[in-house]
């Protein structure tokens, strides 16, 4: 998986329509965190950005790494690992070097911090499955679907769940 998928917004979902031959497919922006492989439907992603300066916000919920400045717009940066409960590898990753996947509605987009950006993948709809009861180390409420690829599992995230306000008590730190 190379990092060729950087210029994503240029790809229109419409391309798909011309592509319909035998199978219908969906396109996903993919990215990695630790050993996990994630995807988001391409039309829920606004843009992808390399590491941006993050200003930490004290007293913020634990999954919020801080705020970033995206061309004058101030976005909340959500740490994917902390958000979905990937705590095992979470301790030593510095948030500063993480890439930003800007997603969500245009009124108030948020930035999802991920370790490495992958390709845009076209996946046949028939290969997409519903969420299993348990995925190791991940809270399944943030997962909308999964797809078994040859070598690994693509976890398709639910952007609404990721963006949703969390009422959990903030960690003491």
């Amino acid at each position: 998986m190379s990092e060729t998928g950087q210029n994503l917004p240029a790809l229109e979902k419409g391309n798909n329509v011309a592509d319909i031959r035998a199978v219908e497919t969906s396109q996903f922006v993919t990215f990695y965190f630790g050993k996990h492989f994630f995807g988001l439907p391409i039309d829920e992603v606004i843009e992808i950005n390399k590491a941006l300066d993050i200003t930490p916000v004290p007293l913020a919920p634990g999954y919020v790494s801080g705020v970033i400045n995206l061309r004058g717009q101030i976005l909340t940066a959500i740490d994917l690992a902390t958000r979905i409960g990937l705590n095992s590898s979470g301790d030593d990753h510095g948030t500063d070097s993480l890439n930003n996947v800007i997603m969500g509605n245009r009124e108030e987009p948020v930035s999802l911090l991920v370790e490495r950006i992958g390709d845009v993948m076209s996946i046949p709809l028939e290969k997409i499955e519903s969420v299993p009861d348990m995925i190791h180390g991940i809270e399944t409420k943030y997962v909308s679907q999964v797809c078994k690829l040859d070598d690994q599992l693509l976890i398709i995230l639910d952007s609404n769940a990721l963006e949703e306000l969390d009422d959990r008590k903030r960690p003491s730190s």
Binding site: T55, V57, L59, A60, P61, V64, V67, I74, L75, T76, I78, E108, V110, L165, D166
Partner: peptide
């Protein structure tokens, strides 16, 4: 303004 995730922190008025 602060994003919706951060709006409820009383000690910040904005960014």
């Amino acid at each position: 303004p602060l994003g919706s995730h951060l709006k409820n922190i009383p000690i910040f008025a904005g960014t």
